[in-house]
Nucleic acid binder design. Structure first.
Lengths: 258, 258
DNA sequence: CGGACTCTTGAATGTCGTCAATCCAAGTGG
DNA sequence: CCACTTGGATTGACGACATTCAAGAGTCCG
């Protein structure tokens, strides 16, 4: 993405929710007039994170929820060997930090994958505003619910043991998310490294790399490092289901009981 | 678990949140007096589900959130081949149905693994009460956050490719949850089938079965079908970290960048 | 006592992880 | 401007471990 356009975007969007292009997808959806102004007052000054900078780290005290305004984040946990496990990638309009609400401390780390602009929602003020505006309370829960749904889908993906299916689902879901953001879902510029993708999918880099190549050989993708073009969305969608070993579609991996 | 004790439990707990043994772990935590009574009024008559009965199915319209009072649930999604993929197991005090908030329809199915008692929270009424009681609003978000944290942990487990580690983490986390419920975490009676465990962990039944046996051979567990006793919690905890192939603990699977 | 079911066990196959070498793009310094 | 470095990405050969397939043991329910 051209950095110039990005900068313009940030400038245009800086002022308020009312003038934000994400309005329909974000917390303000369905909120208007006075209520919107009150929500706006609860949103603290927007921040910009350079690539690689952390928004919060595991163990940090919880003060705020955050919404991605532009750019992209990854969230991950780090084990004792400094091995990181990516939990999620977060695009504009998505909320992060919910996992800290239970304990009052962040359990994971959130980090910018590229230059990323963030809206901070100090929780105390957010609570205050939501208690006054029932529609906002509902909308907050909806946005949280969206995250839960996405994590369920991720979980289902990880349940898939075939690597090509995991990668296909990953690409497809990324494309879908690009589409809802009114971007071209067939021309992806992946902000994350192959390592991040591998970690997110429970695979190793080499496997991810190999399947990118095979998808390219099959004419499904064109891959040039971070730039991935989906040439055959239909075939990609087909790869999202597990390959059946034998013809009779009878034996499944976890057949439903009763 | 002796069914008699269970029945007594249900009877004792039936009336209200105020008299419920889960008070500290559930929505009412930190709520008292009048406010508690108002919450109580929003909780619809408790239901009991027999083993195998669905609380809701994928596609059902969303009306309520549900809290497990006693027993256990599994939630799962079913693909076109009727293959089910277990997303989570839910013990007393845990909330289900959040994923339906975003779209207004349930994306998954929730089913009783044993005789299970449920509190239904009709969403319209819950919203009303939470908007009047800020502490309850916060508590609702906390309980939801707990679920998100659990799903993150599940995700990290699935990121682990060694089957024995996945199973060990599963057992350990179940034991921990039993402990917070003031049950004996070292004497588990698994309400779910081996199939369910396998699906939850992204493995096949045979693999799960084999590792149960090997854990038993190693003196870590005593396994008699559903009854699992943890003989050596220390060794089990040790199994929760990936086995290092070579001595130098340097090379990890997804080494942290920078 | 038999039938259906879940669970367990065994042997063979194949996929993905491991290890190692190479390639490529971008950045640095002479 | 070019040699050199650095880090990520790719490719190949090999081996381990989980899945697959198949059969048997144990349990539940009629």
């Amino acid at each position: 993405m051209p950095p110039v356009a990005d900068l313009i975007d940030i400038r245009q969007l800086r002022r308020s929710c009312a003038s934000c292009g994400l309005q329909e997808l974000c917390l303000p959806a369905g909120i208007s007039g006075d209520d919107l102004a009150r929500l706006d007052a609860a949103v603290r000054d927007k921040r910009v994170l350079e690539r690689g900078r952390a928004l919060y780290r595991a163990g940090d005290a919880f003060h705020s929820l955050f919404v991605v305004r532009s750019g992209a984040l990854k969230t991950f946990v780090t084990d004792e060997n400094a091995t990181q496990q990516v939990i999620g990638f977060h695009l504009p309009g998505e909320i992060v930090g919910i996992d800290a609400l239970a304990s009052g401390r962040h359990a994971s780390q959130a980090e910018a994958l590229e230059r990323t602009s963030i809206c901070e929602l100090p929780f105390a003020q957010l609570e205050h505003v939501t208690s006054e505006i029932p529609a906002l309370q509902r909308q907050l829960l909806r946005v949280i619910s969206r995250e839960v749904v996405q994590e369920h889908e991720h979980l289902v993906t990880m349940g898939q043991q075939q690597a090509q299916v995991r990668l296909a689902i990953f690409l497809k879901s990324l494309a879908d998310r690009y589409n809802t953001l009114h971007r071209d879902g067939n021309h992806l510029v992946l902000p994350m490294s192959r390592h991040d993708i591998a970690s997110y999918l429970g695979l190793v880099v080499e496997t991810v790399s190999r399947w990118f190549t095979r998808f390219e050989d099959a004419g499904i993708l064109e891959v040039r490092r971070k730039a991935v073009t989906i040439l055959r969305p239909d075939l990609l969608a087909q790869m999202c289901r597990p390959a059946e070993s034998d013809s009779g579609s009878k034996k499944a991996r976890h057949p439903a009981a009763n």
